[in-house]
């Protein structure tokens, strides 16, 4: 039997239910604090490993940490959400540009000028930037999903 189309009041009630349902799932759209700081710590460790010559351990540890954090976050929150495009093209370009500039400067200082620990210092700055960007990305995703014009999340 074909259900009848709802009247205006029923349609409004259904739309309100949709908004409420989305709000309930939005509570899960946040990465725990340990995800942000773990990511930053993994990056810092990687750059320390370059400066202090244990990159053969640092790189795999960073890769495993990132994969482990992603899996742990998925289990902890029960949702998977996309973060691509959240920062916007300009901000992403700026962010990547700053990271590359820091890496370039560190390489120049450490390999060109024999400044030991330049990568480690750059790593600390990059790690902090990644933690900040990670938090900001979460906030931007929640803002985007709450926006009225995106009521269906599509």
């Amino acid at each position: 039997m074909r259900p009848e189309s709802p009247d205006a009041a029923a349609a409004r009630a259904a739309l309100n239910d949709v908004t409420a349902a989305r709000a309930r799932v939005l509570r899960h759209v946040t990465r725990p604090w340990w995800y942000h700081y773990g990511l930053g710590a993994a990056v810092i460790l990687f750059f320390f490993s370059i400066s202090f010559r244990f990159a053969s351990f640092g790189a795999p540890i960073m890769a495993l940490t990132v994969l482990g954090l992603a899996a742990a976050h998925k289990r902890a929150t029960g949702v998977v959400f996309s973060t691509t495009g959240t920062m916007g093209a300009k901000r992403t370009l700026l962010f990547v540009g700053v990271i590359l500039a820091l890496i370039g400067t560190a390489m120049y200082l450490e390999y060109g000028r024999d400044v030991v620990g330049a990568h480690a210092v750059a790593g600390v700055v990059i790690g902090v930037l990644i933690v900040v960007a990670s938090y900001r990305t979460d906030a931007a995703i929640r803002r985007e999903l709450r926006a009225d014009h995106d009521q269906a999340g599509l």
Binding site: R2, P3, P6, A14, D17, V18, A20, A21, R22, R24, V25, L26, H28, V29, G78, V79, V80, F81, S82, L145, A152, G153, L154
Partner: peptide, 30 residues
């Protein structure tokens, strides 16, 4: 017609907000 049922509409609305969700998140949410 498939989505019109209240629970199914809310299930779809919750799933539309994310890439995927665990069964228990939807169950508890509803």
């Amino acid at each position: 017609e498939t989505i019109h049922a209240p629970n199914r509409l809310q299930i779809c609305a919750m799933l539309a907000a994310v890439e995927s969700a665990e069964f228990s998140v939807i169950r508890d949410g509803l």
